[in-house]
């Protein structure tokens, strides 16, 4: 499944994750696993909207896991180690007023996922790949 992520406002942010959540539920994936996938993908989706002007998501479902790949062509992440720290955020004030910028998104993704890969290049963009296993 491929989703495009509109980066122009916060109204539509989350629609891709919502679609993926429905699809996983329909396929009979267990609710706690769907919840982990939904939270991780939603955080990644929001990051493209807040930090990178939107992007796209690819969700591939296998018999025992799901791979979620969220890609943007934004500014990239200069220091991934720093970005992974709880509380670290460069979110602009406008984003904070919308309820973002706790600096908890990437740590949340890490916590919910079985594997997390962040590929990023300054000035070119970021791809976040999340693997969620179906076994609890």
């Amino acid at each position: 499944m491929t989703f495009s992520i509109d980066g122009s406002d916060f109204i539509h942010a989350g629609e891709a994750s919502s679609g993926a959540k429905k699809a996983l539920t329909k396929l009979g994936v267990k609710a706690p696993v769907v919840k982990r996938a939904a939270i991780a993908m939603y955080e990644a989706e929001l990051n493209t909207v807040i930090h990178a002007g939107g992007g796209s998501a690819e969700v591939d479902i296998y018999p025992d896991h799901v791979l979620i790949r969220v890609t943007d062509h934004g500014p990239g992440i200069p220091d991934v180690r720093l970005a992974m720290q709880e509380g670290w955020s460069t979110a602009p004030e406008a984003a904070r007023e919308m309820g973002f910028g706790a600096g908890m998104g990437l740590p949340n993704i890490k916590k919910q996922s079985d594997e997390l890969l962040i590929e990023t290049e300054p000035g070119r963009g970021t791809t976040v790949t999340i693997r969620i296993n179906f076994t609890v």
Partner: peptide, 10 residues
């Protein structure tokens, strides 16, 4: 009030 704080609580 910050949504990622909410999700950290999942």
């Amino acid at each position: 009030d910050l949504m990622s704080d909410v999700m950290a609580f999942a």
